[in-house]
Each structure stands twice: as C-alpha cells, then as structure tokens.
Design a protein around this nucleic acid. Structure first.
Lengths: 350, 350
DNA sequence: TTGTATGCGTTATCAT
DNA sequence: ATGATAACGCATACAA
C-alpha cells in the first residue's frame, strides 16, 4: 500500500442562509422563506426576485434546520444483517429507488446477525429522528422489546423478509410456504419420489414455512414423508456436503434434494458429483434465493427467486402510505409476495 | 399478492427534551445539557441525578438539534452506480463498519451510471448537511464541475475505485496496472504465449491501467503485442462470447484470455466450450473482480480480487483523518491498494 | 458549580 | 403582501 500527501488550501464560502438573501434584498427572512416554499401569500414579483437572487447567491436549503422545525427528517433507516448479501442489497436498492423520488434518504445499518447490535442500531436511528425504519431481524433476535420501544416512540416500522409478530407493524414477505410447495411439486413432476429437504433453522419462520410447504406437496402427491430425509443445515456450502453424506448413509437414498438455501444446494451438488452421481439424472436439486452464482454454473441450479427488488419497493410503498395517514392511527399491513420458481438444469430430467 | 389491514390505536409519548428534565429537577436546561455531555463544569451529584432522571424519563438526545447547533450532522453520503453490485455493496459495508463506531451514519445514493443523477445526488446530500461524501463516479460522468462545487461548499469528498482528477480530493483505488500485470504474468507462467485481452472502455482509467499492465507484462516477457488480440468489451456475458468469435476468426488463435471483467470471462469460457476447446488445457482464462460466482463454478475462474471491504475501510479512515485536521486545510491523500490475484482452475495447467 | 441568554436556519403565527 | 417574533432542541459564552 503506497500513499503520498499533498497539502493545499481550499477557500470555502460560508453557507448562505435566507437571512443573507433577506439582507441583500431588504425584505424579511419570512418573505424569503415564503418565496422559496411557493407560499401563495407573496407577490409574483418578489418571489421571482428572491428565487433569482437565491440562485445567484448559490443558496441551498438547510434540511437539518427544516427537519428540526418540522419534526420530519426525511431520512429512513434500513437495518439488515449484512448489506453486501445479494438479497439484502437488492431490497435496499428497491427501497432507495422508491423513496428517493419522494425526497427521502436511506441510512443503512448492519446487525451482523447480532441481537445487541440490532438494539443499538434501532436506538441510534431513533436519536437521529428518522421518519421510519425498515428491517429484517437478525437470526439471534429473541424478543421484540426493542421494536416495541421504537413503536412507542412513534417511529413507523416495516419488516421485510424476516419478521416478528409485533402488533401494529407492517411487513412484506414472500410466501415461503408456497415457495417450498412449488419447488417440491416441480421435483415430483420430474418423477422424483424420494425427496430430501435441507432445512435451515426451523425456529425461523421463513425456514419453517418452506419446510411446511415441502411436506404439504409430498402429502398432496401421496408421497411418504420420511423424517430421516429432513436435515437441518446452516446455509453454508460445507453443511450441504455433510448433509449429503448423512443422507447417503441411509438404506433408502433420496432421488432429489430441495434445499432451503442455494449454498447448501451447491455443497450438496459438489458432494453428489464427488460420489459419482449424475445431476439431474440420478438426483435432482433445487435451491433457494436465486443467488447470482446459481445462474452461471455449467449446470445452472434451480432455485426460488424472492423478488428482492420488488420487496424493497413494496416495503417503501407501505411506508409511504403510512406517512400519509393520520399519524395517531397506525395501519398494520401484511403484504405477501409470490415468489418465482426458477427451473434450471439441476432439476430438469427430460 | 394478498394483504389485510388491521387498524389500531397506538399511544405515543411526546418526546422528552432537556427542558422536561430541567423542570422536573428544578435546574436549568444548561445544567442538564452539561450533565449529559460529560462537561466538567458540574458537580458529580447533580450529574448523576440528571443521568438517572434522564434514563427514567426515557430521554433521547435529538441529534438533529445537536447537528444544527454544531454544524455537524454525523451523516456521510455514499454515491455509487448501483448498490446491489457485489463490489459496491462490499465497499459500503466496509465504510459502514469503520464509521459506525465513530457515531456516523451512512446514507446511500445510486446514480444508475447516469451523470445527471450523480449531480442531483450530490446536491441533495449537500442540502442535508452531510459531513462527507464517498463516491465512485458514474461511467457517463464527463466533467467534474459538480464535484468541485461540493468541495467549494466545504464538503470533504473521497473517491474510491473510480476516480477523477480533482485537486484536493483524496482517493482509494487499487493498482489496476499491477493487477493487469500480475494476471498476465501468471498466464505466461503457465506457458501461454498468445494472450488476448478483453478490455473494458479504455477511456476509463481503471480499464486503461489493466490494459497497460497487460501490455507491460507481455513486453517484459518478450512476447509480441498483437493489436488484434485486444478486444473492447462491455462487461456483459454476451460481449465475452462475441469477443471469442471474433478472436477465433484470426489466423493465429490465442492460447489465453485475460478479461478485465468476470462476466466477459464467463461468456468467453462458455463460448470456448461450445467450440469444443478445453479450459485450461487449450486456453487459459482469467477474469477480474472476484465476483462471487467465479469461485463456485465447477471450473472455478481465476480472477483479481479488489479487496472491496478493505477499500471501504480505508476510505473511511481517510475521511476520519480529514475530519481531525484543521478544517481550513484539506489533505489530499491518494491510497493505492494492492489487489490480490486469485488463481483458480481456469488458468492452472499443471 | 449553576443559571441566563443567545443562536444554529427554518417556518409558522400573528400583526400590520 | 409583508414583517416581527417565536419556536424546534440543544450547546455554549458569559454572568453570577
């Protein structure tokens, strides 16, 4: 790492305020403010004069002062485990794109999947007087005291993807049950009869729902549910590989894998190949999340797209609606998005 | 999409201020403020009383008011083309992690590679009184007027990855020349003698430097530079495929590809396989950026890691240093990070 | 050590 | 239509 320094002086103008304009024009600051805010109580001529002068003097509104005065900062906070996860960064993008045209700025916070951090982030966000919070709860979040506290302070909150049941809080999620069902159904349609499931932590709603959808699809097709076929994994590649090891110790081997994570699906595929099995001929595999890599593999992996961009946009819309309502009444809105099953080579047999 | 509404009343307490505390305790607001700010000019007993009462009353500092008073918002803005690109979201993560412990919040803005948006984003950020701006310029950014304007307003700015030459602006980039050199050198060491280069837009500094590093490595190894071997591509998969088509029309075919983008490298690999060529036996391939997918391919792709997390952290450190200096003097700091060549199956011959 | 008064930049209320 | 003034919540210079 190499670096070099150069010192130089910069001349920075003092920030110009409405008082500077008012002095120059021999009018009151109130008049200037009115002109700037399209207040009807002002003559056309003075308004135009003020506007012209403001531009000349390179006046910029101080949104901080505005915010203090109005009690509205026009900032929102987004709290996610890690912002560089493909899914989360896409949701944030959606939120940003929907909110920017309405004059909001998006502040990002990471929890690193840590409950303490989550509490901390919520608190500092509230101190900053943000107008709303979007969040996907951390895996280690046990109770919702911190969230209820935020609500009590009057901060609207919208959950996305990973939510908790908190009265008065809106949420935007995908139908994980349906996703699990669709994925399993597609495997069944390929002729698979012994479908194993690599589940995440079933204490988390999203994984529980994917699991339940899987079960329901089996039942609806009169396929037996084998408890041994359900392995708890942790979204890591290695976890997918060891799940396969475990499964292949069984007397009856699976002929398909529905994984609640793309990473475990990848690990499973790698392990299956290592064992000399052909995909999708011997074993069909479907993952979950539509991680970018699933598309680019030589054998592209079937997966479920959670439409993160849409999720972000809808979450933003829910927030905007909330802002337009009477602030004393909070609307709890539960939006459930339909995920998209993306069928690729890893689960197509014919 | 299904949704249901529930209406409910929430009771939100009015926000408590230092005046509320001062009234309750029969002291002045100034005293409360001092207690809250660890000001030495206060007795231990009153401080503790105030602190205790503040907690009891659930007092939260209003950072907006603080900001207005101090002229420091403790917010910074980050401007990138798209926040859900793996590289950018990782840089942002680095910035966030370095700045959060110092009490800063990170506001994100996207330009969509559009110059007008970039100008707009800078302006609204300045209105919000952010304390600094981090940015990677858009591909379509032609001049630097908007940036110089921001500087003139007194807003510190730090470039990362994609920079422009603006006096007084610090930057954190990787050594793209060295990266191009290292990648090419490694291909040469595999015995490749006819190395083609899929370059990006050579008007952009980063691509120009990668290209120049490639040329220098060839020269240093007494390999001929073939102008026909340098194809301009656009970071899309298809662009990589068509580049291969073009190259394989030549009389003399390449035996290696150094691509300035992982996506074009992928497209090239797909096309080469389609043509029946073996990688790395017939053709070695190296990409650029360490996109997540390169690691997970059945044949993992060699690439250059730009250490985005580190880049974000260093950019944040540069900013923090700047904040500690006399504000009338701006330090221009140019940090050049050494990228990491990641050699994988696509370019290992033995 | 504590209190009083003022200002940060706006906007809204009340006069004029 | 315009001006004077207060207020948003906090921090500090100055007084006491």
């Amino acid at each position: 790492m190499h670096d070099s320094n150069i010192f130089l002086l910069i001349t920075m103008k003092d920030k110009v305020t409405i008082y500077d304009i008012s002095k120059k024009l021999n009018v009151s600051a109130a008049t200037v403010s009115r002109a700037l805010n399209n207040n009807p109580k002002i003559s056309l001529s003075t308004r135009e004069l003020v506007l012209k002068t403001a531009k000349e003097m390179n006046y910029k509104q101080n949104r901080l002062a505005q915010a203090l005065k109005s009690g509205k900062s026009n900032n929102v906070g987004v709290i996610v485990p890690y912002i560089n996860r493909s899914f989360f960064s896409s949701v944030i993008r959606g939120i940003e794109e929907e909110l920017t045209p309405h004059g909001y700025h998006v502040i990002i916070c990471q929890t690193h999947e840590n409950y303490e951090n989550e509490i901390e982030q919520i608190n500092t966000l509230i101190n900053t007087q943000i107008d709303g919070i979007f969040m996907s709860v951390s895996k280690t979040t046990l109770n919702t005291d911190h969230i209820e506290k935020a609500l009590a302070e009057g901060t609207p909150l919208v959950f996305f993807d990973r939510k908790k049941e908190v009265p008065g809080v809106s949420s935007v999620i995908i139908d994980d049950f349906k996703a699990g069902y669709m994925a399993t159904q597609q495997l069944i349609e390929q002729g698979c009869k012994r479908i194993a499931h690599l589940s995440g932590d079933l204490n988390l709603e999203i994984y529980k729902n994917r699991h339940d959808g899987y079960i329901k699809a089996l039942e609806d097709n009169n396929l037996e549910v084998e408890p041994d076929f359900i392995i708890k994994t942790n979204s890591k590649i290695e976890s997918g590989a060891s799940a396969i090891e475990e499964l292949w110790k069984l007397k009856k081997k699976p002929d398909a894998i529905f994984s609640a994570s793309d990473y475990t699906a990848l690990g499973a595929i790698q392990e299956l190949k290592k064992m000399g099995l052909k995909i999708p001929k011997d074993v069909c595999v479907t993952g979950f999340s539509n991680e970018p890599f699933t598309k680019y593999m030589e054998l592209p992996i079937s997966t479920v797209d959670q439409t993160p961009l849409t999720m972000g946009k809808i979450a933003a819309q829910v927030f905007l609606e909330q802002m337009n309502e009477n602030k004393k009444v909070s609307i709890e809105k539960k939006v459930v998005l339909t995920p998209e099953l993306i069928v690729r080579g890893s689960s197509i047999r014919n």
